[in-house]
Design a protein around this nucleic acid. Structure first.
Length: 357
DNA sequence: AGCACA
């Protein structure tokens, strides 16, 4: 593909000032950035080759559930930045989880994060929008690459050509995550490569969990645990193993507080497992837990600041959600976000049907 | 608020 000559689709007037954005937030009763987090429905993607085009990115994300519009920036001297807007936070998180670490081609791997601000839709030729003709009715963003019959299959590495849900089926698969809600995570364990998933609905099954976790970066296996003796709480829990602590940490952050279709008792609670998959505790009976107050500032999974924002226990080099890659911090004032799209997400703290549990 | 498997 021929590299773009010049910066034909970068325009300074696409940018909205941060002060505008903040004052708009305040007018909606949102006083901290954290409160807005669950309303962010934009994914920020980097890692493209220099010759990527806006239409190329649009075609990469156009079949994701909830996709609304995208914009690619190619400012001289700045690495390529793409933004994709979805119609709610959950869809943005799912797209983010698919796009992150996705090999784009032989030399380039994408990095995807939830953006700091939503893409501001304006009548600009640089913004490509979802098809509205009705001719494209596919609305698939989540098809597990795993075989449902095998017990613990290792997910295949996704690539742009065999993207999960990408023109694979004429029977759309319903998105397994319907939203996010705040969740307390008072006690967590030391980060490891295995996650403990709590507060699952009693009707959850392995197939649903595979839809959610099976295609995430680094997924290795999961195990569903049923404890009928458990009274008054969730009788079902799940262990999910990833290929690295880093991969587990990313899912710990991005899927915290997710609400599944089977969720009838509130959002899931994700903790690091007391013991990694397949490894026995060195000293049984010795407390390993670490009080964490809450799971994190939780910029991604919900909009309430719970606790004091105690430090996350991420391994070196892992950036909490919302951050940029090391050495590539995003200047919010230089991003094309405006306030026009806040408050339109399907879920907000004010209408969460679940008590904080 | 529930941590199995080896």
């Amino acid at each position: 593909m021929k590299p773009q000559s010049g910066n034909t689709y970068f325009q300074n007037d696409n940018f909205q000032s941060v002060s505008n954005s903040l004052s708009n937030s305040a007018s909606q009763g949102l006083t901290t950035p954290e409160v807005e987090a669950s309303q962010i429905r934009t994914v920020f993607v980097t890692g493209f080759p220099a010759d990527v085009t806006p239409k190329e990115f649009h075609n990469l994300v156009r079949f994701f559930t909830g996709y609304e519009a995208s914009q690619l920036h190619n400012k001289t001297g700045v690495y390529l930045q793409a933004f994709a807007l979805f119609n709610n936070h959950a869809s943005a998180v799912q797209a983010c989880n698919i796009l992150n670490q996705l090999p784009y081609d032989a030399e380039n791997t994408l990095t995807a994060k939830i953006a700091h601000k939503n893409l501001y839709l304006k009548d600009a030729p640089t913004i490509l929008r979802a098809d509205t003709t009705g001719k494209v009715s596919l609305n698939i963003a989540w098809v597990s690459p795993s075989s449902p019959s095998s017990s613990y299959p290792v997910s295949q590495a996704p690539s742009a050509s065999n993207l999960p849900g990408y023109l694979q089926s004429d029977a759309p698969v319903r998105s397994p995550v319907s939203g996010f809600a705040p969740v307390l995570n008072k006690y967590d364990n030391l980060p490891c490569n295995t996650l403990f998933i709590g507060n699952l609905g009693d009707s959850v099954d392995e197939a649903e969990l595979r839809l959610v976790f099976g295609s995430l970066f680094g997924f290795k296996q999961l195990k569903l645990i049923c404890n009928p003796r458990q009274v008054g709480g969730s009788q079902v829990s799940c262990f999910v193993e990833f290929s690295s602590v880093t991969a587990a940490a990313a899912v710990h952050a991005s899927m915290q507080g997710a609400i599944f279709n089977s969720s009838d008792r509130g959002p899931i609670r994700i903790q690091y497992s007391k013991n990694p998959f397949g490894k026995r505790s060195a000293h049984p009976g010795v407390a390993q837990g670490i009080a964490q107050g809450v799971s994190a500032p939780q910029l991604l999974s919900h909009g309430l600041m719970l606790g004091d924002g105690a430090p996350m226990f991420l391994p070196p080099g892992v950036v909490p959600n919302g951050g940029g890659p090391p050495g590539h911090h995003i200047n919010p004032g230089a991003l094309p976000f405006g306030p026009g799209v806040l408050g339109e997400v399907s879920w907000s703290n004010a209408v969460s049907p679940f008590p904080l549990s």
